[in-house]
């Protein structure tokens, strides 16, 4: 499957490259239907959608606006997943801590490859935090 990139996430033949992640939500979709976003995908055109966001959706005391923006992307992930499940399009999200050198592009690449896998059609609406366990008890909510 081919894929496109928005913002700082780029696709290379040898994997996903991730550079200078900031607080903006990134959207990663199949290239064949990318231009038609956010129009609902037709059968067979858009199979895998992956949002990249920050773990601020769990709550960010110093920056509530950032938390709200991140949480909005989570709501979008869940809702689009439910909306498009019937046509076989999966919608998932990867959340990483902001400004942390704990998580690397290789970590994100591994998860992107999993969610973008054409065979991986039964996992949808998942928000996967890649945080080395950091958010498990430190978050404002479970």
């Amino acid at each position: 499957m081919r894929a496109a990139w928005v913002g700082d996430v780029a696709y290379r033949p040898d994997g996903w490259e991730w550079s200078e992640f900031d607080q903006n939500t990134k959207l990663l979709v199949d290239a064949t239907a990318f231009h038609s976003w956010p129009v609902p995908p037709a059968h067979g055109s858009l199979r895998r959608v992956v949002f990249l966001l920050t773990t601020d959706w769990l709550g960010a005391g110093p920056d509530p606006v950032l938390a709200a923006r991140s949480a909005a992307a989570v709501g979008l992930t869940h809702s689009l997943a439910a909306l498009w499940a019937g046509i076989g399009t999966t919608v998932n999200a990867i959340a990483v801590p902001r400004r942390s050198n704990l998580v690397t592009s290789a970590d994100v690449a591994h998860a992107l490859r999993y969610f973008a896998d054409p065979l991986n059609g039964y996992v949808t609406g998942q928000v996967l935090n890649i945080c080395g366990g950091q958010t498990l008890v430190a978050a404002l909510t479970a």
Partner: peptide
């Protein structure tokens, strides 16, 4: 670095 997560299938 993926730990403590709950992955729904």
């Amino acid at each position: 670095r993926i730990t403590g997560q709950t992955l729904y299938v």
